[in-house]
Amino acid sequence: MSRLARNTCLILFTAAVWANPTIRPGMWSITSKMNMEGMKVNIPPTTVKQCMKPEDAQNMSRPSMPKSPDGKPPACTMLSNSMTGNTMVYRMKCTGAQPSEISGSMTFGTDSYSGKTTVDSMGPQGRMRMNTEFSAKRLGDCK
């Protein structure tokens, strides 16, 4: 999986934690299906597992961004984040080697969430747009 895809999955999980204090801690399975506009390559769905610890669930007012694969926190800022019922709409901006803007929506349950996101970024080959649909479910306790 590319660095951008890994970082996007981590950012999406963090956005989910920020948005809904009723999400339960535990092991989560997050499946995403991405496509890159203008590319004819079919990117297969990706599933990652993420453990959300109890202290993460208790500290919803002070979330921290996850570290990227190189161990550094991504330089991202939440521009807007609003909840209507159990649906969140958000916008983020990330700076650094691959600046990007991320927008999307997520709908939550206690043990699940799903949504769509769009990432517009500038890379070595110019402007790129990645669309992602994702869903997550709680598998149980972390091991």
Rank of each mutant, 00 (worst) to 15 (best):
T8F: 07
M60V: 08
A57N: 07
M88R: 08
T87V: 00
V119K: 07
R6A: 12
V17L: 12
M34T: 08
S32C: 07
T46G: 05
V89H: 06
S121M: 10
L4R: 11
K53S: 07
I23C: 05
W18V: 14
E37G: 06
T107V: 08
M122N: 13
M122K: 13
L10P: 05
A136E: 02
E133L: 09
M39P: 00
P21N: 01
I43M: 14
M130C: 04
Y90F: 15
M36W: 10
R127S: 14
W18C: 15
F13S: 13
S68L: 05
L12T: 08
P69R: 04
P99V: 02
C9A: 14
N81Q: 11
R127Q: 15
A5M: 07
S114N: 14
G123E: 10
L12G: 00
L4Q: 12
N86R: 12
C51V: 01
S29R: 09
S2H: 06
K143Y: 14
W28V: 05
W18Q: 15
T84Q: 13
T8P: 02
N131V: 04
G26S: 03
P73L: 05
Y90L: 03
C9N: 14
E37P: 02
P45K: 01
K93I: 04
S32E: 11
M36E: 12
G85P: 02
R127A: 15
V17Y: 07
Q50F: 15
P45E: 06
C76N: 06
K67M: 11
E133C: 07
M106D: 00
M60W: 09
S2C: 10
M92K: 06
M83Y: 01
M60G: 07
N35D: 13
L4E: 14
D56K: 10
R3Q: 12
T22G: 09
R138W: 05
A57V: 11
K137N: 10
K143Q: 15
S80A: 07
M92H: 05
M106P: 06
G26L: 02
R138F: 06
Q98K: 10
T46N: 04
C9K: 11
S64K: 10
P66A: 06
M52P: 02
C51P: 02
D56N: 06
T87G: 05
P45D: 01
N81W: 08
N86T: 05
I102D: 07
R62L: 13
M128W: 06
I11A: 15
K53I: 03
N86G: 08
